[in-house]
Write a protein that binds this DNA or RNA. Structure first.
Lengths: 339, 339
DNA sequence: GGTAGCTGTTGAAGCGCTTCGACGACCGCC
DNA sequence: GGCGGTCGTCGAAGCGCTTCAACAGCTACC
């Protein structure tokens, strides 16, 4: 039944043409008459031919694989990462590429390994730190790469991300417009700020800048995504009337803690989140949020990576504009707070 | 600086030996004198040589890549899946293998594609359904594979998993021993049962069997991992004095719902969970749990896959025995319930 | 009627590596 | 001192594919 793997020569023989013709039919790189093409395709189907990936990579000088460097470390929110990953895989597959998983543990050496051995044609990095050891390595790689995130110095690199600074501003502006005068950012765990992860800091900076501009007082506190931490953070926040939660795993805990403290949402406290829509919709009550467009960013990253073949200049950093969706958790502050 | 990629011939020339000698040094498949070996290794380092993955796969008939088929669908708990994935990647890397990500979307066709094109040397599948279309495909693949999970008919396949039936029994036995007479299993979302995912059903069967044996009444209800669902499920459970939560994402919600209903844990209600330790420890109070040894299972799967080279018989299914860790959430039932 | 220009197909030359068989050098043994 | 046996190294073959240069057969045009 299975007399060893089928090669292109088998297909050529079966179809009564040469191996190169089969190759051209499959790649479409040369005109082939309709008759021949059909004959060849029929043989391909009949024999169940799958071109040998290694041979193809060797001869064609491209593996049709891209590397996805995923963070699997402290403080990151796993479901969000997986949304990115799923989008990247989908987009890559749609473009005829497979995805090789590289963990952040391997660091720059891992990237050099997979790129150096021609295992992958390009790389996508997530969870980029402000001063990431992998960033300089990337520049020397001779393979294209795209970062999801924004390092301190993006020169010569292609980056895509949500404009988190603007997202922070947007939240403050929204709350300020509602009349809030005292807001707080409940952010990522401390470890994420310490590590210099870009998105966390950029949001914080955006919140602070907008607060200054809008004449609003803004606190910013890191937060572990566990219930006691949420409770404790809230009890220390005093007469804050609005919260901005930039921590997917903590949204639920914050709402629960508010309930525990007897503070109603949105009547006593308004809550905004920067999180994917599904997290916002799973919360009770549904939380007004700036969406994290994971699927869109993942797809964009792949597109940027693959369009590099066409060498359309250097697109540099693309920061998607944030979008705030108003749901049930934000209202003007209670009367007693508006002097 | 970079005059194109370094080939084995460059290394051979630099070291003053033949290409085959370099190959043998690198693979260790033939005795090489210490002097020559050092010379070659020095040249490898000096030139920054990385063997071309495609060429290696072509000549050596192995790609040093394994496929990991990940579920990215409704009802699965993403962080747990990622724990498995991380363990698989780690173990694979330790064995000199890279990991290619294949999503469940691609189904059997995806497996045939990556195996048929010799892209991967072996496959690991997660989230196997009772009657999974991929399982028969696997048998025809001519590449080894390991399932994390247990299909209806595991004949001829290598499977590893936690013994969920035994886990369910263990929970009931523990609660029965404490004196509980009425327990409830809060399980996976309905969609997971409908799909026929093995672990959910096996746990339920284990719970029922042990309940019968121990003379305990056991309800089993599916549960979405959102707060309102937890609240609703609990309010309908009547005078149940103990809960078994087999749903990582719902553990927190169940505890919060109990708090909301004014039922204290463990004084009024005992709670057991089947979940990874970190979920149990992040809960308030810490929940007694049967651990899901994701890291161990991931590593085991890779080991099983790679030891196939040695062809040590057919190890068949390996079900790890469950371990119950008693923490703060389980006590004998309140007096009023013990007639 | 000759030539220029297409179109469709082919053979052959690699891509960079592994591995097989061969062989020279050197060991110890009778 | 000659012979079998290791040990260490090498040349060459080939893995299955892509792609280049070449060419046969046409059409079209002057």
């Amino acid at each position: 039944m299975t007399p060893g793997p089928v090669t292109i020569a088998d297909v050529a023989r079966h179809a009564g043409v040469s191996a190169s013709t089969v190759s051209y039919v499959l790649s479409g790189k040369r005109a082939i008459s309709a008759v021949t093409r059909e004959k060849v395709l029929a043989s391909v189907r009949a024999l169940g031919f799958h071109p040998h990936a290694g041979a193809r990579a060797l001869a064609g000088n491209r593996s049709n694989i891209i590397a996805l460097a995923l963070p699997l470390r402290a403080g990151i929110n796993v479901p969000v990462v997986m949304q990115f990953a799923a989008a990247v895989v989908d987009a890559a597959r749609a473009g005829g590429y497979d995805v090789l998983l590289v963990t952040a543990d391997e660091g720059a050496a891992g990237l050099r390994r997979v790129a150096g051995s021609a295992l992958v044609d390009g790389l996508i990095l997530m969870d980029v730190e402000t001063d990431d050891e992998r960033v300089p390595a990337l520049r020397e790689l001779s393979r294209p790469s795209v970062l999801i995130g924004l390092p301190a110095d993006p020169t010569g690199l292609v980056c895509v991300d949500l404009d988190f600074a603007r997202a922070g501003e947007l939240c403050v502006e929204h709350l300020a417009a509602l009349g809030h005068r005292r807001v707080a950012l409940l952010g990522a765990p401390q470890a994420v700020y310490d590590r210099g992860t870009g998105f966390a800091r950029r949001t914080r900076d955006g919140v602070r800048a907008a607060a200054l501009r809008c004449g609003v007082h803004a606190d910013a506190v890191p937060l572990e995504p566990v219930f006691p931490a949420a409770l404790e953070a809230l009890s220390r926040l005093g007469d804050t009337t609005a919260l901005i939660v930039h921590n997917e795993g903590a949204v639920d805990h914050v709402l629960t803690a508010l309930r525990t403290l007897g503070r109603r949402v949105p009547d006593d406290v308004s809550v905004l989140a920067i999180c994917p829509d599904d997290v916002a919709l799973a919360a009770t009550p549904n939380v007004s949020n700036v969406q994290i467009p994971a699927a869109q960013l993942g797809r964009l990253a792949v597109d940027r990576l693959l369009e590099r073949d066409d060498d359309t200049g250097v697109p540099a950093a693309t920061l998607l504009p944030p979008m705030l969706t108003t749901r049930l958790s934000s209202l003007p502050p209670p009367i007693r707070s508006v002097r």
